[in-house]
């Protein structure tokens, strides 16, 4: 599949950032509708509320039942406001965690679609423990005994993205970016000028190719001219990933994930 990437235009990192953020690009919901035979949405964290930035439920990938958890930006402006452009609140992370634990109980693999500029920064998020919610997800996800595969669709913004990213395998779409901080944020902190974001985008090494060579991600999924064909690529990668994991025991699945993260920066 990598050979499909060979004849693609070589975009600058910043061009990919712009592309990843452009309205009209496929969202998690578009992908979910295309690759799962059925999808049944589930709501709520059982403590506080139902965060619309997390779109989650049960789906069938081929014949395999899976739990699907996605950050959903919204397809038009009214929906973007309702879903806060995919910026998740603590109750969204807690809803995600509830469904992951449920998946584990019923031995269902978990598929996460990451697409967020970052966790929501606001008074309500802080008051309800944004830091605790993200920390708890990292803590609990590391111990799950079912396979977790995370796909970064467009933007993987920092801790807010990682809270759905403690996975056995991480894939990135060809034009997706994944970063510890937004290029604008980095440029304004380091160089006091957010207009230097394109330079920061380069230095931060945030493209799929950069992260594959750093062994942070496992696979780049090629994008095609049509959504259907792009989704076919995603579906194929997910099926292969689930097949690889289906041969591991629950303990091996957990150990593999722990070792994957243990080795980064060691």
């Amino acid at each position: 599949m990598l050979s499909l990437l060979k004849n693609k235009p070589q975009l600058e990192p910043w061009e990919r950032v712009v592309k990843a953020r452009t309205m009209g690009r496929f969202t998690s919901q578009d992908v979910i509708e295309n690759i799962f035979n059925t999808f049944y949405e589930l709501h709520g964290d059982r403590h506080y509320g139902d965060d619309k930035a997390i779109y989650a439920g049960l789906g069938k990938l081929g014949d395999t039942p899976v739990t699907v958890i996605a950050q959903q930006r919204g397809r038009d402006y009214p929906e973007k406001i309702e879903r806060r452009n995919g910026m998740v609140l603590p109750e969204g992370y807690r809803k995600a965690l509830r469904l992951m634990k449920q998946a584990e109980k019923f031995s269902r693999p978990i598929i996460c679609f990451i697409d967020t500029p970052g966790a929501f920064s606001g008074m309500e998020a802080e008051k309800r423990g944004q830091a605790e919610a993200i920390a708890r997800n990292l803590f609990e996800m590391s111990q799950l005994t079912v396979p977790v595969i995370s796909v970064i669709l467009s933007e993987g913004g920092s801790g807010g993205a990682l809270a759905l990213g403690v996975a056995n395998e991480i894939y990135m779409m060809e034009n997706a970016v994944f970063s510890v901080i937004s290029p604008e944020g980095c440029a304004s902190i380091l160089w006091k000028d957010s207009k230097l974001a394109p330079q920061a985008a380069k230095d931060l090494k945030i493209t799929a190719a950069d992260l594959l060579s750093q062994k942070i991600i496992d696979k780049i999924i090629p994008e095609e001219a049509s959504l259907e064909r792009t989704c076919r690529n995603i579906q194929k990668c997910l099926k292969e990933g689930l097949y690889r994991n289906s041969r591991l025991s629950p303990t091996e699945i957990r150990e593999q994930r722990i070792q994957k993260f243990r080795s980064i920066g060691s």
Binding site: I134, A135, L162, F178, L211, Q214, I216, F261
Partner: peptide
């Protein structure tokens, strides 16, 4: 970069 981010996990 992301290596630092992954230290959270």
């Amino acid at each position: 970069g992301v290596v630092a981010l992954m230290q959270m996990a």
